[in-house]
Simulated assay, not measured.
Amino acid sequence: MMIALVSLYLLQLLTGCGNSRIVYVKVLVVPLPASLIAEMSQPVIPDPLPYEDSLDLNVSLLSSLGQCNRDKANIRAIENERVK
C-alpha cells in the first residue's frame, strides 16, 4: 500500500513538469553609434617626406591609432552591457 502511494506521488511530480512551454521574447537590438563605426580618415603622406614632416605624420598616426583604440573600447563596453 505504501509503495503504491509513493508511486502515485512520484507520478504526479513527473507529470507536473511536462506542461512547461517555451516562450520566445523579442529583444530590441540597439545599433552602435555611427561615430564608433565610422571609417577613420587616413593621414596624407607627402611624396617627398622630409624629416620635419615625418614627425608631424607620426603625431597624426598616433592620434588616429588612439582614437581607434578608444572606439574599440567603447564598442567592447556596449557589447558587455548587451550580454548582461
Rank of each mutant, 00 (worst) to 15 (best):
V6E: 10
S7Q: 06
L8P: 00
L8T: 06
Y9V: 04
L11V: 00
L14C: 04
G16P: 00
G16N: 12
G16E: 07
G18W: 13
S20C: 05
S20A: 09
I22S: 05
V23I: 14
V23L: 14
V25L: 13
K26H: 03
V27D: 02
L28S: 03
L28D: 05
L32E: 14
L36A: 10
I37S: 14
A38M: 12
E39G: 03
M40V: 13
V44E: 10
I45Y: 05
I45M: 11
L49E: 04
L49I: 07
P50M: 11
E52A: 15
D53I: 03
L55E: 14
L55T: 13
L55S: 10
D56R: 09
D56Y: 02
D56I: 04
L57W: 00
V59M: 02
V59G: 01
L61I: 15
G66T: 10
Q67W: 00
C68F: 10
C68Q: 15
N69R: 14
R70W: 00
R70L: 08
R70N: 10
D71K: 15
K72F: 11
K72N: 11
I75F: 06
R76T: 05
N80D: 11
E81K: 07
E81L: 06
E81W: 01
R82P: 01
R82Y: 11
R82T: 01
V83H: 09
V83C: 07
